[in-house]
Design a protein around this nucleic acid. Structure first.
Lengths: 244, 244
DNA sequence: ACGTATTTGTTCGTATGTATC
DNA sequence: GGATACATACGAACAAATACG
């Protein structure tokens, strides 16, 4: 790896360049999660800068929550990203627990709306048809992972919001409405930068990308019962499509 | 075009009326997908409002995903994005042609390297084992879509680079090496911002995210023959996992 | 490598209308 | 009516990213 990607006097402070490079290497898993970074001395030598300069870069990474600094021990790459398995049957809690993390969630919005573009298309409804929205933030070990918007045909699930607030679970609420089982019909993945309200709810920097995962769930008869749009903090989760 | 469709003091905020008008014109293809909207200054003048008011309208369109705003460049109509279908058998050219676009590609790098982290893990090799790398830029209608790094075990495919430069196709090159068919065993999707060389090769802004798609392909016996890392420009493509 | 023009992004301040208590 | 909060709209200036010669 070239040690001298640094552009001195380029208008970008050296520590910013170093921080960006280190961040990229962490994101690349060149420095794996949980692992220790080289010592400050080693890194300073590699980049050809003073240790003060390097410390400024690492401090920036710590502020972003990418690394954890322990005096006398070293600098460690923060929390392994979650491997979120998307399959025919995808449940948030199971997924998080499989990663040996503690799942939790909270409802941030709910209500009845008129379906438009993607929602109407996903559920196979005409634009303007009423749908129920449940919007939740999913967390692992109290760290926000995802913001999920779940849309259901209002005609078929009139009491869904109450059922959800009582059970705290979407699958349980659907079960009360007579849907024993359901599975994923299609999945579409994109990426974009977060909006302001998303950065707040997900406690993330404005500069880091989101992974958007749209899905349609159908019941036993193949009728669409849910259109879901999950927004995952790309730095904290990766989506895995193992053996669908 | 009527400049004064705006009804001031009608109970509907000006910015909402402007957003609706612009949305109609986008849907009309008056502003075609991929094209640039007039500047904020021009639009503000056309509607006879302050730039703030216009910006509020355009922000609403961005939130809906109809346009994409790039500082210093302009506002671009979103859409015409490629739906890249990932399945058991995923071939770039077929995928692009299915979208009624003309696929092309070029080799940007190739060589022999020692496998490290993800590559070694994906191919089930020990770290340090030699692998062949083929790195290509994939384009649709001459617009760069993806940057793909394809790693193969060097021991099994010693002449792969020559075969590829002759045929220009990975599947054809593998076929020459005796691999009749192969399919995808696993897929992992993440997102991050691009590195500098990626922005150059993909002709994209530094501020827009990449969709990273890691995959492992296996042959008839289930042996890994390729580890691939595709980097897709998130604004130009979405990944679809229909009916795996 | 550098300056200039263009375009979007941000932050002041000010004023007005509307809904609520 | 009065007080308050909030969304809307306008104006000016500057910051930041980009494009171009």
């Amino acid at each position: 790896m070239a040690a001298s990607k640094l552009a001195r006097g380029s208008g970008v402070a050296l520590w910013r360049q170093i921080a960006a490079e280190l961040e990229a290497e962490i994101s690349d898993r060149h420095f794996p999660p949980g692992g220790r970074l080289p010592t400050e001395h080693e890194l300073a030598e590699r980049f050809g800068v003073n240790r003060h300069t390097l410390r400024r870069a690492v401090a920036a990474l710590e502020e972003k929550g990418l690394v954890r600094i322990e005096q006398g021990r070293g600098t460690f790459v923060q929390g392994g990203t979650i491997d979120y398995a998307v399959g025919k049957r995808t449940r948030f809690s199971e997924n998080i627990r499989r990663q040996a993390r503690e799942p939790s969630g909270r409802l941030v919005r709910s209500g009845r709306f008129a379906a438009d573009g993607d929602v109407a298309r996903g559920l196979g409804l005409r634009r303007g048809t009423q749908v129920i929205l449940l919007e939740t933030v999913g967390m692992a070990d109290e760290v926000p992972i995802s913001l999920g918007s779940h849309y259901f045909p209002a005609r078929r699930f009139p009491g869904l919001i109450d059922a959800f607030t009582q059970t705290g679970s979407i699958s349980a609420a659907l079960s009360e409405a007579g849907v024993e089982d359901y599975w994923r019909k299609s999945t579409r993945v994109t990426a974009r930068l977060p909006h302001d309200n998303e950065t707040e709810l997900l406690e993330m920097p404005r500069t880091r990308p989101l992974l958007i995962c749209d899905s349609v769930n159908v019941d036993q008869d193949g009728d669409p019962i849910e259109f879901g749009r999950g927004r995952f903090v790309a730095d904290r989760v990766q989506i895995s499509l193992e053996s669908l």
